[in-house]
Design a binder for these strands. Sequence first.
RNA 1: GGAGAGUUGGCUGAGUGGUCGAAAGCGCCUCCCUGCUAAGGAGGUAUACGGGUAACUGUAUCGAGGGUUCGAAUCCCUCACUCUCCGCCA
Length: 415
Amino acid sequence: MIDINLLRADPEKVKNILKIKNYDLDSGLFAEIDSNRKTLQTDAEDLKSLKNKLSKEFGELKKNNQDTSELSNQLDEIKKNLLEKEELLNKTLSHLNDFLLDIPNIPHQDVEPGNSEEDNKVIKTFGDVQKNDSIDHLEITSDIDIESAVKLAGTRFAVLKDDIAKLHRALISFMLDVAEKNGYQERYVPFMANSRSLTGTGQLPKFEEDLFKATEDLFLIPTAEVPLTNLYADSILEQGNLPIKVTSHTPCFRSEAGSYGKDTKGLIRQHQFEKVEIVQVVHPDKSDSALEDLLSNAEEILQLLELPYQVVQLCGGDLGFSSAKTYDIEVWIPSQNKYREISSCSNFTDFQSRRSKIRLNEDGNKIFPHTLNGSALAVGRTLVAIIENFYDGKNAIHVPKTLQKYLNKEVITCK
RNA sequence: GGAGAGUUGGCUGAGUGGUCGAAAGCGCCUCCCUGCUAAGGAGGUAUACGGGUAACUGUAUCGAGGGUUCGAAUCCCUCACUCUCCGCCA
């Protein structure tokens, strides 16, 4: 949620900034709704005020056994008017709210224009990539069993077996350990969330079709960002408690609506995948440096795993709805001969804290802290990267050194 | 799933139709007295939103939503959550 006062003060400026995100703000409509709201609200409150006053007088008259019929008529009239006003006001307020919930976050000043991922800027590369005709992870090992998963649930699921399942589990432990070493406190959280939480972090109301809905008002989480960030919803944090740094490993569920035909083969794009997420809540002055910190925390995992990657900064057009600034980390996938996203690290500034009502007590003033999060990392894609980057071309996958102690193995033999 | 009890400000806790945004106590803040502490005295102390340059002012909020009423923390309905017991279950 962007600051409504900013919109009131300088709508044209906001409109211009949001163009970089390809969002066309209807500033005229906003002015109209807001001015309607103002008139209706003052009118309604004046009527209520009058009603309260007259009701008191009514009580006095009753107490003294005096005639109340005149007042009674007057009050009837006021109530009728009030009912009409309130109905209009509620409509206007919900219209205004819908309007505000639809507006994306304002991009950070560092964000450059651009339309799509083609325009993202590579700001760093790490490691050497192998450019040969590698076979993909499904061909390397038969321990990724898609057929069984189709039987159980359908496409975009997988069953992992034996050493591959263990490698998958080892990665989760390893990632959590790195996060803990970097100061993140581990949390175990619900894998379902209500609409209140999902609205807070920005998935709802606009992106409901991307989610799996379980029952009325309960959705499977698309990322641990939702529970971790909403841990602090509706609360007032003390300065001494910042920065908050928390982490959690959760499965993530995504409907992948609209991605038919994309990445249909293998583990790259699944309805269910594991991820270790890191989240920070920081003072507004600190979020720029916190994003760099968070990014380096995610990068560290790839470095320890000796996986080649690049970091890109997203251009305005590719930036997510809630984000002010995002770095994607892309890992080298030999079979595709390109880098693929394995982590997304974002600064949401005060966008989520406004929606979730996360506040910070700064010397008695309640301000909105900044929230950030990043994947560290997406486990399924890390698994793919390891299988493909460390495949010896024959029948073995070399386990990266740091992982060996988690797996008690140096080599995984392909079946 | 069944039965019962409960949900009031930072906390404890009173309040069954108007004088209640809410007693009292604790905590916290300011001042006074004392001054080594401790004790004592006076006052203040919720949040959100709106209007106003401001002083100030209006509205809403006693778990949530609806209803009855001129008027609801208080009466009625629905729901959520917490606790106890029973059932079921990992």
